[in-house]
Each structure stands twice: as C-alpha cells, then as structure tokens.
C-alpha cells in the first residue's frame, strides 16, 4: 500500500476528529459569551453560579441537552427527521476544516479553500429545509421555507463580495491570502465595501439577529426546530454557534489579516512559537467579532422577511457587483 496515501488518510482522520472535537468547546465558549454579554447589555448579572464567574453554565446546558427526552412526533418523517440535525451540524463542522488558525495550524490546506468553504457552508440550508419538512408542523414548514429563501439569497452577495478579494489577492487559498495581506496590508483597506457586504450577508447566512427569520421565536415558535428536543435540538443549537464562530473566523481571515498581529506587534513569528502566537491573535480577533454579533442581538429587533429579501436583492447584490466591477477594473488598469 502506498505509504503516502496512508499518511494522507491518517492525517485527514486526525484533522477531522480534532476539528469535530473542537466544535463542542467552541460552541460552549460562544454560548457563554452570549449569555454574559447580553446579560451585561441588559443590566443583569447573567449566569454566576456554576464555576468561577459562572463559566461552566453553557457546558452544563450542553450536558442537560444530552439528558433530555428525545421525542419524535408521530407523524414526522422519521428518516429525514433524524438526519436533519446531522446535516446542519456536519455542514458547520466540515467548513471548519479550512479555517486558518495559524501558520501550520490549518486542518486541510486546500488550494481552493474559499470555494470549499462556501460550498460546504451552503449545505446547512438543506438540513434546515429537511428539518422543516420532516417535522409535520406548520411552523417548521414555514421556517424551513424561510431558511431556504434567506440563505440562498444571501449566499449570492456573500460570495460575490469575496470574489473581489480573490481577484485582488489572486488566490483561493486561505494561507496564501493571509500571506498576501502580510505583504500588502490587511484586505480591510483594499476592500471596505466588500467587508460591509460580507458582514451583513454573513449575519443573514448564519441566522443571527437581526436576520434570524428562520427561528423567529415570536412568529414561528422556533422555526424548523419547533418539534426537535434533546440532543437533536442540541445539534442545531451547537451548529448555530459554531457557524457564528466560523463566520467570524473567515471574516477576519479575509479582511483582518487572519493570524497576523496588528501594527505595534511583530506580525508573525516562526516555528512552534509562531503557531501559538498566530492562534492567539486569531482567537482575539475572532472573539471580538463574535462579541459584536452578540451585541447586535442584544440591541436590534428582527427585520421582516420581505425587508430581508429586499435588502439582499436590491441593495447588497448590486453593491457587490459594482464592487467586483471596480476591483476588476482597478486590477486591470493598475496591474496590481
């Protein structure tokens, strides 16, 4: 047997296992941040009983979900009902494979990492649609249809905004993209419009307030998740927070230099120390953006479904196209 193939397979298994394991604590941390930051915005204490400063509240929530009854409605479509949480969760976990944590700390250093990322993340809409369909519940059905409409619509401006970045950097590989940013400065300076489009569209893509039409607890109870309980619901719940983490990670990789340190610090170190250093900066930046998303949730009310779609098709999409046109023209003219 080819030894290279074996090593490749082993490496892949190890990487995916590590990434899968990483999703759980990531979700716990993000949920804990949400609990604490929203509590702060609402002048409450937030969780403060379990662990120091209530640190383990979200962990306990996770285990609680494991212990709960897993109920499948009589008239639900059992096969797809069971499958849907996995589809959503795996879409989130698999897109984590290409996230560039630090030099040397990328699970799979794809040459088409960006394409892979958007392809896999887009799969979660299938899971939501299936969940809404299989639940035998009108709220679920409406939620599933909303998720299909919303996520498909927002994927277009989301991807188009990134095309500008790709045209400029000339690569689809996250590592090379960050190297480019090390030389030329963070993409934020070059593509500010794309940043705005990407940020808005990414919030919609992962169903965060103010675009959480899919769950919309005051209208559709819990959207496609209405009939889910126990760990099946837990998977949806985790996937949502993992997706928030991933989106923030991709956002900083694309526009804020990924693992690169900001100005007064040396932007990158070598060797193992360099990896630790990169991971450190990656997490600092990512959690800043997660905190912003959480604060948005504490502040804003939800937009209506027609306003949401109108924004995607009438504002973000034309803007992204103009941005792409200008970028491409600039690249041609100035031979960047």
């Amino acid at each position: 047997m080819n030894i290279d193939l074996l090593i490749g397979v082993l490496r892949f298994l190890l990487a995916t296992t590590l990434i899968l394991l990483l999703t759980v604590p990531t979700a716990f941390v993000v949920i804990q941040m949400e609990l604490k930051i929203i509590a702060g915005a609402q002048l409450r204490y937030g969780p403060n009983r379990i662990g120091p400063w209530g640190m383990f509240q979200s962990t306990i929530h996770g285990f609680k979900v494991l212990a709960k009854e897993d109920h499948i409605p009589d008239q639900a479509d059992r096969a797809t009902f069971t499958l849907a949480p996995w589809m959503v969760y795996m879409a989130a976990a698999m897109s984590m494979l290409v996230i560039p944590f630090a030099p040397g700390a990328i699970a799979v250093d794809f040459n088409i990492g960006i394409v892979y990322f958007f392809a896999v993340l887009g799969l979660s809409v299938v899971g939501l649609l299936v969940a809404g369909w299989a639940s035998y519940n009108k709220y679920s059905l409406l939620g599933g249809l909303r998720s299909a409409a919303q996520m498909v619509s927002y994927e277009i401006p989301l991807t188009l905004s990134v095309v500008g970045v790709v045209v400029l950097a000339g690569t689809l590989n996250f590592r090379e993209l960050i190297e480019w940013q090390r030389v030329h400065g963070w993409m934020l300076i070059w593509q500010p419009v794309a940043l705005v489009i990407f940020y808005v569209a990414s919030l919609a893509e992962i169903n965060r307030t103010p675009f959480d039409m899919v769950e919309a607890d005051s209208e559709l109870v819990a959207g496609p998740f209405t009939e889910y309980s126990g760990m099946r619901f837990g998977f949806f719940f985790f996937a949502e927070y993992v997706a928030l983490f991933i989106m923030s990670g991709i956002l900083i990789s694309l526009f804020f230099g990924g693992w690169l340190a900001p100005w007064p610090f040396p932007d990158q170190l070598d060797g193992f120390i360099g990896t630790i250093y990169g991971v450190l900066w990656f997490f600092i930046k990512t959690y800043i953006f997660i905190a912003v998303a959480v604060l948005l949730r504490a502040t804003l009310v939800r937009v209506r479904v027609d306003q949401l779609m109108g924004m995607a098709w009438k504002v973000l999409l034309p803007l992204a196209m103009v941005n792409l046109l200008v970028t491409a023209a600039a690249v041609l003219v100035f031979k960047l």
């Binding site: 929203i38 609402q42 002048l43 502040t299 804003l300 009310v301």
Partner: peptide, 16 residues
C-alpha cells in the same frame, strides 16, 4: 412590543 419583533433587551429595561 420589541420582544415580539425579536428585540430581547427592552423588555428587561421595562422590568427594571
């Protein structure tokens, strides 16, 4: 009113 549109904070201020 805000809660029914998905805004979770004003209700807490109301309760204060």
């Amino acid at each position: 009113l805000a809660l029914d549109m998905g805004g979770i904070t004003p209700i807490l201020y109301g309760f204060i």
